[in-house]
Write a protein that binds this DNA or RNA. Structure first.
Length: 608
DNA sequence: CAGAAACGGGG
DNA sequence: GTGTACGTTTCTG
């Protein structure tokens, strides 16, 4: 039996002898540092939870008769903090879950199904307490080959695991990053891959690469000149394979660079077998768009990341770069690229500069923004590839799914199409806004609440699992058994939240904020600059996560969606700021402008 | 006016 | 892949 430590950068599963085998892709830590490794784990089984209706033993018999699962276990789980008996029903293959769940739901002794909509690799990470981009310990047998793995990389290790890996270290790791960018001949507006050739491939890395591959530019020092477009792509493929990068980044590369590269490579007969397992570049359907993936080499499309990372009117590479670094980029108008290419003069030189500049700028943006996404990966515990493409509400949700598993709570089901439509019609009132009084004001006093909404969620225990339901309103409450002192009652709608126990989401937000304070304290104490910066990124990631969680109650795809909670938060928020304004007025401060969690006042002691 | 369709980024 | 973005603006009936 062999032991290894590895950084897990990517995860999937394949089917081997009709059973799922999890594949962990990554780099070896310790001896043979940096070498590629694929770990195979065939020990994990797909399952879902059944909430039985009536007699549990009869329910088991009915499921065994009708569905033929491989195994059923009885267990107790909490559902919105209420202990209930559940059946954990195991299947042979992950695809049996969607195949059989409708049949299962229709059984007379089945009340409800839970956790039937969690992708297999995500379930694996959660149940085994593994965090991608961290270091895990492996035990197993090294094997020479395995079906579905066809690599010509001599140093690739394949390890068949005896048992699931154990987390060893979830600390920040350094990763090698390659950025790339294509320039394409485009006489008729946007290029057409059937006709218009690639004229330049820019490549820049945080390991020192900074070049452009092209069929022209012989006398420019950063250009590698080749004799054809085919050789250009082959040289780029070789560059990727030789350097064994962890991450490859582009700008809108999901929708432009990678699809274009695939199309041209196909026409020219070049293999894009860039995967660690020898597989080629693939495209995953994500809604109405595609995501380019390479096994074991994480592709990040920075355009998607930047749209979440900042709030701008436009997200062109030029605009984003200008905003982040305050510098202008070299500009070549997109529709004139073919003219610059044909000019064979200073304009051609300028096009080469532009190509390199786009590539280097993309790398700089990656170096600036990927650390916080790596931290979110470490906290949320889902693959980096997924994190960079997830809406923030989804990041918060997968974090909560993991936290629910840790405290033995079952997770609410994902909303159905019908749920969305219903939820879309529920529109909440936002924060209180007092339109500013027009004019120049002097000697203003500013007041604002520090993280108003997260504080309210915690202090008023706003959570769907502690919301009183039988009677929605306090006004119509006549039940003598209920003591109003046991509840926080929201203004306007009079929703009632139990004071105890602590709600699931308030307790998670509380832990996130406590952890953030702990990190901020450590950051202030630290004298090491690098450590200080790392801790700063960590606390920023936690701040983002906490700030996301107050908005998600109103996010229609959220598993813990609660219109009542969303309404209660903003209603309490409006009440708080109005109370604070009234309080200030008693001391002669008159608000001239207010918005959600803060206001500006003028001091006018004479005004009655 | 409401619901459907288009759009973003990229060259 | 235990699957089908997303939020906003513009168009259309």
């Amino acid at each position: 039996m062999e032991k290894r430590k590895m950084i897990v950068t990517d995860i999937d599963y394949i089917t081997y002898e009709d059973k799922p085998v999890i594949r962990l892709f990554g780099k070896i830590k310790g001896d043979k540092e940096g070498q590629n490794i694929i770990a195979l784990d065939g020990t994990f089984e797909p399952y879902l939870y059944v909430m039985p209706e009536g007699n549990i033993e009869e329910c088991i018999l009915q499921i065994e008769d009708e569905i033929e699962p491989i195994r059923i276990e009885k267990l107790s789980k909490k559902d919105f903090q209420v202990k209930k008996d559940f059946l954990k029903v195991f299947f042979k293959h992950p695809q049996d879950v969607p195949k059989k769940r409708d049949m299962l739901r229709d059984l007379s002794l089945v009340q409800d199904l839970r956790e039937h909509d969690i992708p297999f690799y995500r379930r694996y990470l959660i149940d085994n307490d593994l965090y991608p981009m961290g270091v895990v310990e492996l035990e197993g047998e090294l094997i020479d080959s395995f079906p579905t793995i066809d690599s010509n990389n001599e140093s690739l290790e394949i390890m068949k695991l005896d048992h699931s890996p154990v987390m060893f270290d979830n600390a920040y790791q350094n990763f090698s990053i390659l950025s790339f960018d294509l320039e394409v001949y485009n006489p008729k507006g946007m290029p057409n891959a059937d006709k218009d050739e690639i004229i330049m491939i820019g490549a820049a890395s945080n390991t020192g690469i900074s070049k452009v591959i092209s069929t022209k530019g012989e006398d420019i020092d950063f250009v590698e000149t080749v004799s054809s477009e085919k050789e250009m792509i082959e040289s780029f493929v070789k560059l990727i394979k030789d350097n064994n990068f962890d991450i490859i980044v582009g700008y809108n590369s999901d929708n432009f660079d990678f699809p274009y590269l695939r199309d041209r490579a196909k026409i020219l007969g070049v293999d894009l077998d860039l995967g660690m397992d020898g597989s080629s570049l693939k495209f995953l359907r994500r809604g109405y768009t595609n995501a380019a993936t390479i096994k074991g080499l994480i592709h990040v499309d920075l355009y998607l990341v930047m749209r979440r990372y900042m709030n701008l009117d436009r997200y062109t590479l030029e605009r984003v770069y200008q905003e982040l670094f305050g510098e202008e980029k070299i500009d070549v108008p997109g529709d004139k690229i073919f003219m610059y290419w044909d000019s064979d003069s200073e304009e051609l030189d300028r096009l080469f500069d532009y190509s390199l500049d786009d590539t280097v700028s993309t790398l700089k943006i990656a170096e600036q923004t990927l650390p916080i996404n790596l931290e979110l990966t470490r906290v949320v515990g889902q693959p980096f590839f997924d994190i960079t493409r997830m809406a923030t509400g989804q990041q918060a949700e997968w974090y909560l799914v993991r936290k629910a598993f840790e405290i033995n709570e079952v997770v609410p089901n994902k909303p159905t199409g019908k749920d969305f439509i219903n939820r879309k019609h529920e529109s909440n009132v936002g924060g209180y806004v007092k339109e500013p009084e027009v004019g120049l004001h002097e000697n203003l006093v500013q007041f604002d609440f520090r993280s108003l909404y997260p504080s309210l969620i915690i202090s008023k225990n706003i959570s769907p699992d502690v919301l009183y339901h039988e009677d929605d309103s306090f006004d119509s409450l006549v039940d003598d058994e209920i003591d109003k002192d046991d509840y926080f009652i929201s203004p306007e709608h009079h929703y009632m939240f139990k004071k105890s126990p602590k709600g699931f989401i308030p307790s998670v937000i509380g832990n996130v904020l406590d952890e953030r304070i702990r990190i901020k304290t450590a950051m202030k104490k630290s004298t090491d600059y690098t450590e200080k910066m790392m801790l700063d990124v960590q606390q920023q990631a936690l701040k983002r996560l906490a700030n996301t969680m107050y908005g998600v109650y109103g996010y229609s795809r959220f598993r813990w969606y609660s219109f009542e909670c969303a309404q209660a938060i903003t209603a309490w928020g409006r009440e708080n700021i109005k109370d604070a304004m009234k309080f200030a007025e008693d001391y002669g401060f008159y608000a001239i402008y207010a918005d959600t969690d803060g206001f500006y006042c003028k001091y006018c002691p004479d005004k009655d």
